[in-house]
Structures are given as structure tokens and as C-alpha cells.
Amino acid sequence: MEIKFFTGLQFSDLGFLGEAALKTLMVSGVAIGAGTLLGILFGWILYQGRWVAAASLGLVLDAFRSVPLIIQLVLFFNLFPILGLPLEPFTAGAIVLAFYTSALVASIVQGGIEAVEKPMRRAARSLGMSYWQDMIYVVWPIGLRAVFPSWVGVALSVIKDSALVSVLGYVELLRASQILMTRTQEPFIILSVVGAIYFAISFPLGLYGQHLEKKWSS
């Protein structure tokens, strides 16, 4: 009986990689989406800076950025069974990534609100705008232009960091490449293809961000 352990690279493997790439984008997308919304909220709270909530929130968000992502993932994934709630790797990964993203976005948003200069906001308020009108019609559009490039940077970071969710067993792109490398013993080709896929996702987005930044700063 012949047992085939190592088989060569096949076309179906490309499909496998493609599917895994989608999984990467899925978990990243959820994390970036939820994380950005949370981050905007957190950033606004931090900007207010007046309540005890702001101080303690700042501390918590700071922790997200001072502990390696892989540690956070393992910790979180092992916490929930303890509480009696088993989590799927995707869910655990998405939640951790979302909070991680929110910490990064919060500091960007805080800086972004502060970047909209006081005189501009004073002008808005003296025209009779309410606090929220000022926020929506003045701070948001102007601040958005200031922080968008940084936000794109965060998004790209999260897409790359999502590779770590593979530690929990989630078969995203990098894990898929590992599986293929073990089976086909063709690491170089696979790494090149996977590298190209990551590049194809990340590079154009980065260029687009730069393009918008240039357009908006004129």
C-alpha cells in the first residue's frame, strides 16, 4: 500500500489559498469595521478627558497596545471556556482584533479632533451651532481628512496582524500556506504566491490612502 504524504502543488491549491485569503479579509473586515466604530466612540471619550471613565478607558486601551497580539488572542480564547462559553476561533479572533483596532483608532480620533483647531470650532459655535452640529459639520469633515491616512495605516496593520488568528486554529491565508508547505514541500513557491497575495491586498490600499492624502491636503 502506497501512502502519499507529500503531493505536489495542484491547481485546487490555488482555490484553497484564495478561500483562505477571503477568510483573512473576513476576519479583518469585521475587526476593522467594529473596531473603527468603537474607536471613534472611545476617541471621543478620551478627547473629553474629564471623566474618570476617560482615564480608566485610556489605561485599558493602552494595555491593548502594550501586550503582544498573540498573547491577547491566546488569553481571550482560553478565558471564555472558563466562563463556560466556548468560542469559535473566528469569533474570538475577530473580537480581540476589534478591540485592538479600537485602541489604535481611538488615539487617532482623539488626535484628529484636537487637530481641528479651536478657532474654527469657536467660529462654528459663535454662528449658533450646537455642540453636536459643530461635531458633525465641522470637526468630522475636517478631522476625517487629517486622520484618514493614519486610519488606512491601521487597517492595513490589522489585515497583516490577522495572520495571528491562525494561532487559534483559524485557517486564514498564512495558516493555509503553512499547511500547503508541509504537504507539498515546496515552501519557496508557496511563500512567493502568498507573499504576492498579501502584497496585492496591502500595496494598492496603501497607495490609495497616499493618493487621498495628497488630494485632500491641497
Binding site: A163, Q178, Y198, F203
Partner: peptide, 19 residues
Amino acid sequence: RNTPALFQLFFFGFGLGAF
């Protein structure tokens, strides 16, 4: 800057291992 850090580690581990 455009690939995950883990990927870069894989390169130095598996990638060069191929050679």
C-alpha cells in the same frame, strides 16, 4: 511593510529552508 511579520519569519524559516 506590506506583508505580515509572521510571514517574514516563515520566509527566514521555511523559505530559506527550501534552499
